[in-house]
Amino acid sequence: MDWKLELVAVPVSDVDRAIAFYTDGAGFHLDHDHRVSDEVRFVQLTPPGSACSIAIGTGLLDVPPGAAQGLQLVVDDVEVAHEELTRRGVEVSEVQHLPWGSFVFFSDPDGNGWAVQQLPPR
């Protein structure tokens, strides 16, 4: 049996600001933006080429904005990813080359922490 992770909730304080960051800055695709009720808004965004999406909104989580840490994206070329994020206005770390891969790091406006990894040659 396959077990597929397809949605990760990310706590944010301002949904519209987060949508702008993830679409305009990080390049995610906006899949859904649905107001379920006055208390609940569900927004789903997906990184290009990913089978896993993130969910942001109101009334979804009972954790503080910025609590999501260690979220990770994997790319073929971390240098190109660094250039693209920088060009889009995202504050991103310098590329770090480690034995288990090359990385850049960034945070969304609430402080949710992301890593972008290029796997080492196998």
Rank of each mutant, 00 (worst) to 15 (best):
K4I: 11
P47S: 01
D24S: 15
V10R: 00
A20W: 07
V10L: 00
A51N: 04
W3Y: 11
H29L: 12
V36E: 09
Y22T: 01
H32M: 06
D31K: 14
R17L: 13
R35K: 15
D38F: 06
S13Y: 01
F28P: 08
H34C: 08
V12D: 02
L7T: 14
W3K: 11
D24T: 15
V8P: 07
V15W: 02
G27Y: 03
V8H: 09
G49N: 09
D24L: 15
V36P: 05
P11N: 10
V43R: 08
S13R: 05
A20Y: 07
R41H: 05
P11V: 11
F42C: 12
D24A: 15
P47W: 03
W3L: 14
E39S: 12
G49V: 12
V36N: 08
L45G: 06
A51C: 03
D14H: 11
D31I: 14
A9Y: 12
F28I: 10
V40K: 00
F28T: 07
V12K: 00
R17A: 15
L45R: 04
V12Y: 01
S13Q: 01
S13M: 04
D24I: 13
D33W: 04
R35S: 15
G49F: 10
D16S: 10
V10G: 00
T23I: 10
F42N: 11
T46K: 03
S13W: 00
T23F: 06
H29M: 13
A18L: 02
D2C: 11
S50P: 04
P48H: 07
L30G: 10
D24H: 13
L30K: 06
F28Y: 11
E6M: 13
P11D: 09
L30N: 10
V10A: 01
H34R: 11
G27N: 03
S50Y: 05
D38C: 08
A18C: 01
A26T: 01
H34L: 11
A9H: 15
A26R: 01
L30E: 08
S37E: 07
F28E: 05
A20C: 11
Y22S: 00
H29K: 14
P47N: 02
A9D: 14
V15M: 07
A18P: 01
G27C: 03
V12T: 02
L5F: 09
S50T: 06
A51S: 06
L30Y: 07
V12H: 00
T46H: 02
V36Y: 12
V36G: 08
S37G: 10
G25P: 05
T46G: 02
V10F: 00
R41Q: 04
T23L: 06
A51Y: 04
D2T: 14
P48Y: 05
T23W: 06
H29A: 15
A26F: 03
F21V: 12
V12Q: 00
P47R: 01
V15T: 10
D24W: 12
R41P: 05
F21R: 11
D24K: 15
L7K: 13
V40E: 02
T46V: 07
E39T: 13
A18S: 01
V40Y: 00
V40L: 02
S50L: 04
G25K: 04
P47T: 03
K4P: 08
A51Q: 04
E39Y: 15
G27Q: 02
A51V: 07
L45Q: 06
A9R: 14
E6N: 12
H32F: 05
V8I: 15
V12A: 00
P47F: 03
L5Y: 09
Q44E: 07
